[in-house]
Design a protein around this nucleic acid. Structure first.
Length: 884
RNA sequence: GGGCGCAUAGCUCAGGGGUUCAGAGCACCUGCCUUACAAGCAGGGGGUCCGUGGUUCGAAUCCACGUGCGCCCACCA
């Protein structure tokens, strides 16, 4: 027998971990592949193995878990697939920092030993993020946990690389890439985001060979001038046209620079002439390419100046910049220095300013892959929520550029390309023993590894066994919903669609839900370095997982950013506690031997208005919450549940029940309260899994089915038709609120139980209200409530008119202040008259009556009638209100 | 330079392809330890829905322009 006497407060601290372990042990997180119910799959956006849980994860994974739990309860085979990403550069950096603490570099260890060391690190710390994710209560299938460097996933990476290679979609070449001099590797364009920052624009005078003339060129990076191999002007530029074909002389170096005409040059910008540095600028690279200008690389991989630059050799790029500017000044070649804001790329892992750098790298040709990815979106096979993100997706794919996939680091998937001694290059799925062309056995593998995202883009299917046609793949792929942050739309989402279609001929998911960025209460992005982050673990410790989840889900709107303060989590905690206490009340009033009737089986005749109203509200809530969850509107779902559980169930249904529980209808009321609570818990379970399970387990066994709420069926609307009763209850509530309002307006002491008079013309309403007279009295703090047809002619009453002209009067006798009452009634009457005037002017407008929908006109007529009634009543009251 | 988005109560935000839409939570004010809950109960104040035009019988809601923010993309040295 489960203990049903609850403590006064909900304490999540120990319950949550125990419950989580139990769920896991029961295998609820682990759906079986093969034949069975319709599957529903979400793959986790794999956090970095180096990661720690932050609010972004908390938000992202909570959303996923709410969707998964909802679908699981709806009977689908819900698979929430967890895992982590090896995060090439980030992880390598962590381990290198560790080495540096011992004064060592990765080269001291050598490649193999270093990679072993990273694996060891991963084994030791890589599971931490999993433990942390479990604290969020997410119902991941931990038996299917994946890691991007797993043998299985690595196999998929190889397969895709080789396919692309064989299809001619992968190529290698010397191009300008984003180079991080600290990580000493190439980066993709996405990994080197540009940031606007202040800088200088230096204008330098380049003399013309054999002439006194010179040409002015401008640059933001003077140190690269040492690598200049030309000067370009626009072909139609009158000022410089005569110079084309001549030769300029590079200051400090003396190299001769041909002056060429190229369309790229913007004659409007700067001096209209551009120094061409093919090895250090992507534009210059292509100008150089078009005009056969040589490339002179002046930088070492660590961005110090190399042997090409004579006396500047060995200087860091920024030192070199200063010294070169100084030298130019001394030489008289520096024309001017201006302030200049420009966009500079930064390494997304270490924030170092990246250098456009000429090097030999591997690329994926993106256009052929982008085409079908675009098609899937345009055909509606891929949807975004909020839908506006689709445009961003489209825009990126339309302007997609080739993807640099090679990284000069050691931690990652090694590029599966080998070269034999005879120079034959080939890609292979399995490590080759000999050259397939000449049989040579001396093979060398490309030293580089692949971009981390080259494995991430396969995630939705590599985790399920692809390229093998596994049962998992057949059952759970394609997945349904992908939930992620907008920051990785290009990095990850778009590429997954491309890879999915390329490898499996199907978009890997149908819905992309974009969640907002979590910011602090000043609107700043939360980050460790800024120190403004709210640690989800702290919030969980303080308020519980359910509180964290509820607050996140409630505050997260449609994917725009959300601002969070620690106090916001109290809201979730309070709600959990409220629910706990509601159940506590119901349990306290459920005798041990009581056997509740399922609500569908209760004899309708025994249901009172208030029970009918509650059941009607339950039905409405079921439909609304389900719809909101299906539409990814978790905030609306959560608000609807709060409204129903707190304000309908607790504030009214429970309060009402206090009049009845010990009376003749007590058992019916009890059964309804239990039945509605049980369904309410189920509805809330996806959002607040723990407290709902705790309470659900304590319900009488006959009220629930199954061993856990998380595998209980999702509630279905019964289809009661209790509109009439609901309407009566609405009036009942209005009457009670009006009475309370009157008392509070007069500051009546709570001890003063003034009698209440309710004046109702309408016979049916009178009968209905009369049935609840005792309730009204109790809830309004009155000694008794009388329902009458005609207003009593007596002094000492204060009144208010609610809808249908129903008057609510409290007998305050000598507490009453006639003048004040007169004033209040006059104001009220005036307000209603103004409203009436507005409504009438609408109704008098022939255009309105003719063109507005009938329903709207009818509603206005009702409104007018109701206002007239109220005004009449108010005027009557004013007349009978005699001054003392 | 392009693209996208946002401006509603003191704060955080819902809403809206037209007519009970002027809302919620928090904060605030007043009164309550009413035996489920003070992490609570009851009542209350508070907004020319950014500005200006337009469409319409009717606009916070649709359109245009403007203003102010934010984000993304981009080869202006």
């Amino acid at each position: 027998m489960v203990e049903r006497t609850l403590p006064k407060r909900y304490d999540p601290s120990t319950l949550e971990t125990l419950r989580y372990a139990e769920w896991r042990q029961c295998g609820y997180f682990h759906p079986l592949a093969g034949d069975g119910p319709e599957p529903y799959t979400i793959v986790i956006p794999p956090p970095n193995v180096t990661g720690v849980l932050h609010m972004g994860h908390a938000l992202n994974n909570t959303i996923q878990d709410v969707l998964i739990r909802h679908q699981r309860m709806k009977g689908r085979r819900a698979l929430y697939l967890p895992g982590t990403d090896h995060a090439g550069i980030a992880t390598q950096n962590v381990v290198e920092r560790e080495l540096a603490a011992d004064g060592k570099t990765r080269n001291d260890l050598g490649r193999e030993a270093f990679v072993d060391r990273v694996w060891a690190w991963k084994e030791k710390y890589g599971g931490e993020i999993h433990d942390q994710l479990m604290r969020l209560g997410i119902s991941c299938d931990w038996e299917r946990v994946a890691f991007t460097m797993d043998e299985r996933l690595s196999h998929a990476v190889r397969e895709v690389f080789v396919r692309l290679y064989e299809d001619g979609l992968i190529y290698r070449g010397e191009y300008i890439v984003n180079w991080c001099p600290r990580c000493k590797t190439a980066l993709s364009d996405e990994e080197a985001p540009k940031r606007d920052q202040p800088g200088k624009l230096y204008t330098i005078r380049y003399p013309l060979a054999g002439s006194d003339e010179h040409i002015l060129v401008a640059t933001t990076r003077p140190e690269t001038m040492l690598g200049d191999t030309g000067v370009a002007v626009h072909p139609a530029d009158g000022r410089h046209g005569h110079l084309v074909g001549q030769v300029a002389v590079l200051p400090l170096v003396g190299r001769e620079l041909p002056i060429v005409a190229d369309d790229f040059v913007d004659p409007e910008f700067g001096t209209g002439a551009v120094k061409v540095t093919p090895a250090h600028d992507p534009n210059d690279f292509w100008i150089g390419d078009r005009h056969n200008l040589p490339c002179v690389n002046v930088l070492n991989p660590d961005a110090s100046m190399n042997e090409q630059v004579g006396r500047f050799e060995g200087l860091d790029r920024f030192e070199a910049r200063r010294e070169i500017v100084e030298a130019l000044e001394v030489e008289g070649s520096l024309e001017k220095i201006e302030d200049h804001h420009h966009a500079v790329g930064h390494c997304y892992r270490c924030d170092t300013v990246v250098e456009p750098y000429l090097s030999d790298q591997w690329f994926v040709r993106m256009e052929p892959l982008a085409e079908p990815a675009l098609g899937a979106y345009r055909a509606g096979r891929l949807k975004f929520s909020p839908s506006a993100w689709g445009k961003t997706y489209e825009h990126w794919l339309e302007n997609v550029r080739d993807w640099c996939i090679s990284r000069q680091i050691w931690w990652g998937h090694r590029i599966p390309v080998w070269t034999c001694e005879n120079g034959h290059e080939f890609a292979a799925r399995e490590d080759p023993k000999r050259c397939p062309e000449c049989g040579d056995r001396e093979l060398s593998q490309d030293p580089d590894v692949l971009d981390t995202w080259f494995s991430s883009w396969l995630w939705p299917f590599s985790t399920l066994g692809w390229p093998d046609q596994t049962e998992d793949l057949e059952t759970f792929y394609p997945t349904q919903t992908l939930v992620t942050a907008s920051e990785i739309l290009f990095f990850w989402v778009a590429r997954m669609v491309m890879a999915g279609i390329y490898c499996t001929e199907s978009s890997p998911f149908t819905d992309v839900v974009i969640n907002g960025t979590v910011r602090d209460d000043h609107g700043l992005r939360m980050s460790k370095s800024a120190g403004n982050g709210i640690d989800p673990r702290e919030m969980i410790d303080q308020y519980g997982t359910d509180a964290l989840r509820y607050t996140l889900v409630t505050l997260v709107p449609t994917g725009i950013d959300l601002k969070l303060a620690t106090d916001d989590f109290k809201v979730g905690r309070n709600f959990a506690n409220k629910l706990w206490n509601a159940a506590r009340f119901v349990f306290l009033n459920t005798p041990e031997e009581f056997e509740p009737q399922p609500i569908e089986e209760i004899d309708r005749g025994s249901l009172g208005d208030r029970e009918r109203w509650l059941l009607q509200r339950l039905d409405e809530t079921i439909v609304a919450v389900d719809g909101h969850l299906e539409a990814f509107r978790l905030d609306e779902a959560s608000n609807g549940l709060r409204e129903f559980l707190w304000h309908d169930y607790c504030d009214w249904a429970i309060e009402w029940s206090k009049t009845d529980l010990d009376g003749p209808s007590g058992d019916t009321v009890r059964s309804v309260l239990l039945g509605v609570l049980e369904r309410g818990l189920r509805l809330l379970h996806p959002i607040m899994p723990f407290v709902t399970e705790e309470l659900w387990q304590r319900l009488p066994a006959t009220t629930r089915t199954g061993e856990s709420i998380m595998i209980a069926p999702w509630p279905e609307a019964t289809g009661w038709d209790f509109a009439l009763e609901s309407d009566r209850v609405a009036l009942l509530r209005e009457v009670i609120v009006a009475a309370r309002n009157l008392r509070s307006g007069y500051e009546v002491p709570s001890s003063h139980k003034a009698p209440l008079v309710i004046v109702v013309d309408d016979g049916e309403d009178r009968v209905a209200l009369d049935r609840h007279a005792a309730d009204v009295a109790r809830l309004a703090g009155a000694s008794e409530a009388r329902v009458v047809a005609e207003a009593p002619s007596e002094n000492g009453l204060v009144s208010r008119v609610v809808r249908g002209g129903v008057e609510v009067a409290v007998r305050l006798a000598d507490l009453i202040d006639v003048e004040r009452e007169r004033e209040r009634l006059t104001t009220e009457s005036g307000r209603k008259q103004r409203q009436l005037a507005a409504v009438r002017s609408k109704l008098d407008d022939a255009q309105f009556v003719a063109k507005a929908p009938e329903q709207v006109v009818a509603r206005e007529r009702e409104k007018a009638a109701d206002l007239e009634l109220a005004i009449d009543r108010l005027d009557e009251l004013l007349q009978t209100l005699s001054p003392r």
